[in-house]
């Protein structure tokens, strides 16, 4: 043991010397694990998807390597796909907006509580996450169904039943319910850093509550709003479970089509699915870049 240590020592110091000599080499060595990870699990699959999107679907579902733009053509011409894109983006926008309108006041309310209550309230927001997402979505089916809680109450009041489920409205409710915490938490974090004396300063300088909010509080909590919106928007546009369960698999959202193209249709159409994913990614990237451009305007 002692001998080993002795003999290996000079070699170690040579390596150390090499590291010290070459700053670049050292940097490369430090970056390697992260880069390797990114390449293997992010860049490589992405390249595969891009390649697939230009390939031809074979009759049995096998991918044939003939270059084609037909997949992209289909996406932009067939109403099934165009509508799915529009419907998904619309659902995403609406969900994000409603989560924002509900989440901001909620986060503000929690921030203004005494510290002990803040912890309790944040905890309450997180508790539903301990239950499986599917189970929670099934719960909404029970609440909204024809013999569900809401309709029972309506009936008890002597009113006619309302067809709440399955519907696009039910999908929206499910999406808002599932995503609200992702809006509340980042906004809470930015409100927590907000110095409420600034509101007094604004009032002192003649700003009523509305103007104090618009000129001081809103711009300073914009990072939280931006983060929350992105966290809600992206998964909402790509989801397929909620629309499957609460929409009764009747209306197609992006995620449902993707899922079908890759696994359910016979034969599966991976090239078309890949093209769909690439367009989806491009749309999201543009939307998010635009969003950040707008929300961080004041800071530049």
């Amino acid at each position: 043991m002692a001998l080993e240590t002795l003999t290996s020592e000079p070699r170690e110091s040579r390596v150390a010397a090499l590291l010290r000599r070459s700053e670049r080499f050292r940097l490369g060595l430090l970056l390697f694990p992260g880069l390797f990870w990114l390449l293997l699990f992010f860049a490589l699959p992405l390249v595969v998807v891009v390649l697939y999107s230009f390939a031809t679907p074979g009759p049995t579902g096998r991918v044939e390597w003939h270059f084609t733009l037909a997949n992209y053509g289909t996406l932009f011409t067939e109403s099934l796909y165009v509508n799915a894109y529009l419907r998904s983006i619309w659902a995403g926008v609406l969900t994000t907006l409603i989560c924002l309108l509900a989440g901001y006041p909620l986060a503000l309310y929690i921030v203004r509580r005494p510290p002990r209550w803040r912890t309790v309230l944040l905890f309450l927001i997180l508790i539903p996450f301990w239950t499986n997402f599917l189970v929670r979505t099934y719960a909404w089916m029970i609440i909204l169904s024809n013999n569900g809680i809401i309709n029972s109450i309506i009936q008890a009041l002597g009113l006619p039943r309302v067809a709440l489920y399955p519907s696009e409205g039910a999908v929206l409710i499910g999406l808002i319910y599932g995503n609200l915490p992702f809006m509340v938490l980042p906004i809470f974090a930015s409100l927590d850093r907000f110095d409420f004396t600034l509101l007094e300063a604004a009032a002192d300088l003649g700003a009523d509550q509305t103007r104090a909010f618009l000129r001081v509080m809103l711009p300073l909590t914009m990072p939280g709003i931006a983060a929350g919106s992105v966290l809600v928007f992206i998964p909402t546009v790509g989801q397929f479970v909620v629309s499957d369960l609460l929409g009764g698999a009747k209306v197609d959202y992006l995620g449902n089509l993707l899922q079908r193209l890759f696994t359910r249709s016979n034969p599966p159409n991976w090239p078309l699915g890949s093209a769909m994913a690439i367009v989806f990614m491009a749309v999201l990237t543009v939307a998010i870049l635009l969003y950040f451009r707008i929300t961080t305007e004041q800071d530049r």
């Binding site: 110095d195 007094e200 300063a201 002192d204």
Partner: peptide, 20 residues
């Protein structure tokens, strides 16, 4: 009378300057 309707101004201990 709320502060925004008083012709009085305050210099705060923390200054409370608008950082943005």
């Amino acid at each position: 009378t709320p502060p925004f309707r008083r012709n009085v101004n305050t210099v705060f201990q923390s200054y409370a300057l608008f950082p943005h």
